[in-house]
């Protein structure tokens, strides 16, 4: 663990190939590392630095800018309760407070069994469903306190297979087959697209 596995590395290379500049793949690769280990380890950052040819400090610089990347071991389920303005108006603070009591931890902490990490987060674009939350980035709308407790129970008793472990974002990945890919021109070469040329729109 920790460095990218063979399989992750294959996915990583697929992703890298889609960008004219390798470094563009950095954020997707950090997600990949987080999917593999549940958090982003120093070893993974080092490995990513190696494969895209930048320094580990640069990887860390980017990684640490974005909230979703956890650089310490994280709970298997990241509970993000929205405290954006719309949810705030409809009781987000109480819901967070309730969550703290139910889980026995404060915002920003992980339960001792390593199952839940709790956070109050900024607006998650479900404002009309306030108060809302995400568990491992899966939405739960208009959450009441009892619903919250029910969710926690379901997860503890492993009844929520619809919610993958922390780190897995999209369960569906983009695949581009070799036959269908358009490919791209090097950024160093100024070549006008054929369809413009044919339309006489470039000299």
């Amino acid at each position: 663990m920790s460095r990218l596995t063979e399989e992750s590395l294959r996915t990583a290379n697929d992703i890298i190939d889609r960008y004219p500049i390798k470094k563009s793949a950095l954020i997707p690769l950090l997600h990949l590392a987080q999917e593999q280990d549940g958090w982003v380890t120093d070893e993974a950052m080092n490995h990513i630095a190696e494969i895209i040819g930048i320094t580990p400090a640069e990887v860390l610089g980017t990684c640490s800018f974005y909230e979703m990347f956890k650089r310490q071991p994280n709970g298997e389920y990241q509970v993000n309760i929205c405290h954006g303005i719309s949810c705030h108006l409809l009781g987000a603070d109480q819901l967070i407070h309730h969550a703290e009591e139910t889980l026995g931890i404060h915002e920003g902490e992980t339960t001792s069994d390593g199952i839940f990490s709790l956070e109050g987060v900024e607006c998650i674009a479900a404002c009309t469903e306030a108060p809302c939350m995400q568990i491992n980035y899966r939405y739960q709308n208009q959450v009441s306190e009892s619903q919250f407790d029910e969710l926690v129970k379901q997860i503890r008793s492993e009844e929520r297979s619809d919610i993958p472990k922390h780190g897995t974002l999209a369960k569906v990945r983009q695949n581009i087959s070799a036959e269908r890919i358009a490919g791209f021109d090097s950024i160093d070469e100024s070549i006008a697209p054929v369809w413009l040329e044919r339309n006489g729109e470039v000299e």
């Binding site: 320094t55 400090a57 640069e58 610089g61």
Partner: peptide, 21 residues
């Protein structure tokens, strides 16, 4: 030699190296 970098964000931003590097 980009071995020092901004780390973290906003009011927490700091300059630092990668751990052990």
């Amino acid at each position: 030699d980009p071995l020092i970098h901004f780390i973290d964000r906003g009011n927490e931003t700091q300059v630092n190296t990668f751990p052990e590097d």
